[in-house]
Design a protein around this nucleic acid. Structure first.
Lengths: 223, 223
DNA sequence: AATCTGAATTTTGTATACATTTTATGAATT
DNA sequence: AATTCATAAAATGTATACAAAATTCAGATT
């Protein structure tokens, strides 16, 4: 009757903690990951820590430099742009598939999340909006019923996650995003796959433009 | 004047060797990766070997089971189907972007590869055909000028690579694939992105159907 | 002052020893 | 015969010791 609880190894614990630190930007992009420093901070020996580096390198969050350690992957504007170009297409695919495969309960859940999002928008609650927004996109992705797509999507999303915190969302853009989401839900309910694909792709390309503008503004401020 | 040759670490050497063994199917899907056995075969200690497991897990070739080691990832029919569904879309995206961004020299190289492929087809040289075919798709992908797309594409391709060896290509399907490639080149030369996307997506979905049929036939033979 | 040089230091890479968990084995029990 | 349980064996997980490479820094040289 003992539940076969999969005890996490120290390598996985270290991986999870490091991942959060990188995604939240608490370790700067390009920063060197010194083993001695991190063993002290994470309270694990070098063996599981180095295994964590390898796992995170596979996720694209860390870059391994032979004989010279590991550094946090640098996500420059070109990478962000290319990543969104791809993600826009994946979102479109997910939407098209979801329109064909989504179940009534899933659609109901997305409808509920849509109201959560509207509530956050009305309160000017940006974190709440981000959260509802991400959940909606994740639900659409799950409704596409393609685990390889979902895995790829989450992986790419993770790599550019930190850029979202930095992005300045104007009121106009925020209102526009809300309008786009209303239309997304309508097309999903109408099971109009092709139209949903087009709209979701454009929705993501709009998001890309917003974020790239913020990045450039940040660059200008730094200089 | 000394070239800064990046000396590969044993972890990377072991990773490369293991990767080949898995991709070529020399270690069966689902097989346990015993550390003692592999340290003897690869002549490295457990430390770099275990790091190699982590890297390959990130590539989706290996699955890590906490406290129970690593196994070669199982690629079942559902996974192959889902992977091709995604790759079909990525190929379409690559084609659409390539139609806009390809350079004359790249187009010339693809034209040459197309003739290589026709030559292999005429000689009924299947390995030569596979090679030219893969090079063409890789060139189209490179011409899309999106490194994140290319990385994602190669990663997915690698995971299902071994299924290609097993696939039985009928003469009709082979002829059809050649015809599709002729049309692909024509649309690329005409810079017709949308049409090229549609065709490439369908081309990959046709490839999926062929491979899934072979897999099922193999299943039936095994039972 | 800037550059070069070469130890001293630090850091990464690897092997191995020890700890813990899982798996195999085999006798005892039903 | 099948099952249970205790023990042994093997495997994985982790820490540490040692090796090799990169980096730092003081002093010499220009």
């Amino acid at each position: 009757m003992n539940a076969p609880i999969p005890i996490a190894t120290l390598a996985h614990v270290a991986t999870a903690r490091l991942r959060d630190m990188i995604i939240e930007g608490r370790i700067a992009p390009g920063a060197r990951l010194n083993e001695r420093v991190l063993t002290e901070k994470l309270q694990v020996s070098r063996t599981p820590l180095r295994e964590a580096f390898k796992i995170l390198a596979g996720e694209g969050l860390v870059e391994l430099l032979p004989q010279r350690g590991a550094v946090v992957a640098i996500v420059d504007a070109a990478t962000v742009s290319a990543t969104y170009e791809l993600m826009a297409d994946l979102e479109g695919l997910a939407g098209e598939l979801a329109a064909e495969r989504i179940q009534p309960e899933e659609l109901a859940e997305i409808r509920a999340l849509q109201f959560d999002m509207l509530a956050s928008h009305a309160r000017r609650d940006l974190p709440g909006y981000f959260r509802a927004n991400m959940q909606i996109h994740n639900k659409i992705n799950a409704a596409a019923r393609n685990p390889v797509l979902t895995e790829t999507y989450l992986r790419l999303n993770q790599r550019i996650y930190s850029t979202r915190y930095r992005s300045n969302l104007s009121n106009e853009r925020w209102d526009q995003a809300i309008a786009e989401h209303t239309e997304i839900l309508r097309l999903l309910e109408a099971r109009d796959g092709p139209a949903l694909r087009t709209l979701l792709t454009q929705h993501l390309l709009n998001k890309r433009a917003t974020i790239l503008a913020s990045l450039e503004a940040g660059q200008a401020a730094a200089a």
